[in-house]
Write a protein that binds this DNA or RNA. Structure first.
Lengths: 154, 154
DNA sequence: TCAGCGGGTTCTAAATTGGAACTTAGCTCG
DNA sequence: CGAGCTAAGTTCCAATTTAGAACCCGCTGA
């Protein structure tokens, strides 16, 4: 399977990965959540080559994750801002953070901690069931074909 | 920055991506959660080349995400099972599913739905604050340096 | 004894990445 | 006036990674 065929699969994981599933993209998005917006800042902070950065930003703008907007004219300068669709990637970033904190911290504790301004506490983001609000365990979940699969295996 | 330097960064996102952050790895893990365990099954289901599959499985076993165990001898046959560390990736997979369901469903509805056996309901996994149990919004969160960062910027 | 299976390895060609140099347009300093 | 600086890229070549197919090995069942 080629990379471009990925978004045609009837699987939300594959479709999501077709947008954000490469080496650099999630690091770019991580920095965007830390308020980085400019080409050169991404370049300097990430150590990514300009070539690759340029192509990823283009792809993410096309995908609707970033919006490219001029923050000045003369000379024209642009910034990249997360759209609503991009902001919705936050749970994925926090999922990555949570796993890294738990399994890759080298015994030193988490490098970054999160504070929830709404309730004024340090928070440990947790994935729960929308119905019973209990934390989810993979062994207690069952995957079933949904409506988006209907016409595929008919 | 090279791929191998990624896990040395004082960032849990980077460290997590050093393990699961490439094209195929998350698809392999997705299928593992759907109970795929054998080399040839991964190969057939994913359309991944054997070369890449072999190298990814090796890497994931080294990282402690999968455990390689013989399920028969004569001839020796192996299966790959998620460890506790691997099972802990579930929130990330569900995060990817959730985003794909919301933004990439092509108007047809989700291809796969999840049923929570504990409470007997179809569920929409949700990321909430561990303290106030409200869903998290990136605009209401603040990232702060944690203990794992101390010695780096001293 | 020979076809088939599970679980790989090896090979070559094509695509992607890294790294450095170059471009473009408008400042700003002397 | 011209030299150098800045932001945001593009172009080029070499090195790495991937795709795809072929091959291998130990064992089995017919």
């Amino acid at each position: 399977m080629k990379w471009q065929e990925l978004d045609a699969q009837p699987c939300s994981v594959a479709r999501t990965l077709s947008v954000i599933g490469d080496r650099w993209t999630l690091l770019i998005i991580r920095n965007a959540f830390l308020r980085t917006r400019r080409f050169d800042d991404f370049h300097a902070q990430l150590g990514i080559t300009k070539h690759v950065l340029s192509s990823r930003l283009k792809k993410l703008v096309e995908a609707g994750v970033f919006e490219k907007r001029a923050y000045q004219e003369k000379p024209a300068r642009y910034e990249y801002r997360l759209t609503e669709k991009g902001l919705d990637l936050y749970p994925i970033i926090l999922g990555l953070v949570g796993w890294g904190d738990k399994w890759m911290d080298e015994g030193k504790g988490p490098p970054v901690e999160y504070f929830h301004k709404t309730c004024n506490h340090k928070t440990q983001p947790t994935l729960v069931c929308s119905e019973c609000h209990e934390p989810l365990d993979p062994r207690e979940m069952m995957a079933m074909p949904g409506p988006g699969l209907k016409d595929v295996n008919s």
